[in-house]
Design a protein around this nucleic acid. Structure first.
Lengths: 286, 286
DNA sequence: CGTCAGGGCTCCCTCGGGGGGAGAGTCAAA
DNA sequence: TTTGACTCTCCCCCCGAGGGAGCCCTGACG
């Protein structure tokens, strides 16, 4: 048989660049039908054209090369599942984009209400908690799983929550994109089971503010609270706390959510002397 | 004055990682309010928090860092324009994604109609044309501009098109992602003006097929035609041609578009001997 | 006032998905 | 057989982000 299509011919037919065809060969995504062992020349066949086109489509959809390979290797029915999963990811990403646009519009409006910050001393709180080291991008998924598990354990042990659930997020989580995170449900005499452990949230003095609405904007509230804490020259003592006063388990409408953000503080030597104007969360100041 | 917030403090407040803050400093996107010349320590102020949050939002929208810098530097009204442009790009990208999904669904259906290929010898054709070296990704935008310019020039010189417009696309455009492209409108005695030059599309023997619908799928038709040409052991002689029988200027409905794809061919020595089954554009064959 | 941990600094490597180009080897048409 | 077009590998670049080593600086505590 003739050796088939050279890489250039195949490139012309599929509109995949020669560079990409070589990379796809390297990565095992699209093996040439034949490779001359002496010269290294790659030879393709017309039967590979449709495969190449399908690869192109998946890559157009930003499906990772690894995954495209899996899809091509999978049986047709499993294939459908993988594709559906990817499309769901695209949809989620689209939601995030929409949220970012919405939030951006809000931020560029110059009329932002100043936040109110409350100081509060809280006693130690016994809870049932799950703690782990997670990456910042995975916190949401991890949170859902952990909260569900706490709910299950409390249910089997017939304990009723003694207050709204909350979380503690280590500072490294934000400075280094991954760090320790804890989510808890207050309950006296907490049971153990699965990842759930009893944990006593330590007593602390907190600077607290309430974030209204979905968590897409929560960094703005963090910023406002952080600015306040800085303006009053307060030191940060330990992980940030969030208390989910109204969350997805209370209402399906994210706009109705209420999240307390609590920053454990201690007064530095200069704290009382340096108090000045309250923090502002205004728009750009370039 | 105190030196302000350390990079860690600022990171906690803005939820931008320390790494990213340093990169944004390097790239000039977000300069610390102060940098200690001896230690290199970066110090930020709370006034920079809103800026950081806006940067975060733009990055969430995949706006390139270069561009975010421009947006921040621009006056508020020019800012609106840049943002609108970016949102338009996102919208366009979304369309492309939808098209890819649609096309993918079609490709994974196993019942694809085989294409019909026609051989045609065409004489030399005098035209008014624009030629340039363009990147594959920019062809569409370039095409629109070039066609508009040809239309303008023909209008001022009172020449009527002598047939459907077309294009010639060098093979390098596909093998190397950039190459020479020509678009033309047939007209005897073509005028000169702007980028428009008279150009005679050379006579050739062509293998021609018609692509129906929007150009998102056009690579499939290219693949089918390429497979046909290969199956009949024909050589490729010169740039591929497209003839826009029904295009955006005839109808707003992309599904009604008709594009001829014409591959200049020559018969190789083995051509008549090797003729075999017609090309198929069927689904995956993994 | 000295110690020392925590946090800051720079520099380099990695990843993913691409591009450009050099230098050498190969194929096939004239 | 020549020669130009094609292909090979290898290395560098881009973007935007992360990991980690090794060293220096700051500040709270004793």
């Amino acid at each position: 048989m003739p050796p088939g299509l050279t890489i250039g011919d195949f490139s012309r037919i599929t509109h995949l660049s020669v560079k990409m065809l070589r990379r796809y060969h390297e990565s095992g995504l699209l093996e040439p039908a034949e490779v001359d062992p002496h010269t290294g020349y790659r030879y393709y066949t017309v039967a590979q054209v449709p495969t190449a086109q399908v690869i192109r489509r998946f890559r157009d959809l930003d499906m990772p090369v690894r995954e495209v390979k899996e899809v091509l290797a999978a049986e047709p029915d499993a294939r459908g599942v993988l594709i559906a999963e990817h499309l769901a990811r695209l949809e989620k990403q689209l939601d995030a984009t929409r949220a970012a646009v919405r939030s951006l519009r809000g931020m560029l409006e110059p009329d932002r209400a100043p936040i109110t910050v409350e100081h509060r001393a809280v006693p130690a709180l016994p809870t049932a908690a799950v703690t782990a080291t997670v990456a910042l991008g995975e916190v949401l998924a991890w949170y859902d799983g952990a909260m569900a598990e706490i709910g299950t354990i409390l249910g089997t042990h017939r304990r009723a929550p003694g207050g709204p659930p909350g979380g503690l997020y280590g500072n490294e989580l934000f400075t280094a994109e991954r760090g320790s995170a804890t989510v808890y449900v207050p309950v006296p005499d907490a049971p153990t089971g699965g990842r759930v452990r009893p944990y006593v949230v330590p007593a602390a003095e907190l600077a607290v503010t309430v974030h209204h609405g979905p968590h897409d904007d929560i960094d703005v509230t963090y910023g406002a609270l952080g600015s306040y804490v800085t303006d009053y020259a307060l030191g940060v003592a330990g992980p940030v706390r969030e208390i989910y006063l109204v969350g997805p388990r209370e209402t399906a409408d994210p706009a109705a959510w209420r999240t307390e953000i609590a920053w454990p503080i201690f007064r530095t030597a200069t704290a009382t002397a340096t108090a000045s104007a309250p923090a502002s969360a205004a728009g750009l100041d370039t």
